[in-house]
């Protein structure tokens, strides 16, 4: 979890955010600088869901 937080922080801040730091291309109606954050947020959500199911999924309650 700490790793996930640090990796995402790095992806959303400079210098790594420099990869996405541009209006072009416009994807799904968003400038690339915005799309990048939304994309990784979606990835984050999927990873978190997987972690949660790994921990609690099989227990019935």
């Amino acid at each position: 979890m700490a790793t996930l937080t640090v990796v995402l922080l790095l992806l959303f801040t400079f210098p790594l955010y420099g990869i996405a730091n541009s209006a072009e291309p416009i994807l799904l109606g968003m400038p690339f600088s915005m799309f990048w954050i939304v994309l990784w947020t979606a990835v984050e959500f999927v990873i978190l869901l997987a972690l949660y199911w790994g921990e609690f999924g099989r227990r019935s309650r």
Partner: peptide, 30 residues
């Protein structure tokens, strides 16, 4: 899509950080 194309054409740099025409620096954003 059209909206952001319009902004990018009229205000270059506005949709990015720390470039000419941007309103915030890289360190400040981070």
């Amino acid at each position: 899509g059209q909206m952001f194309e319009g902004i990018a054409a009229e205000r270059p740099g506005f949709l990015a950080i720390g470039q000419e025409g941007s309103e915030m620096g890289k360190t400040e954003f981070s």
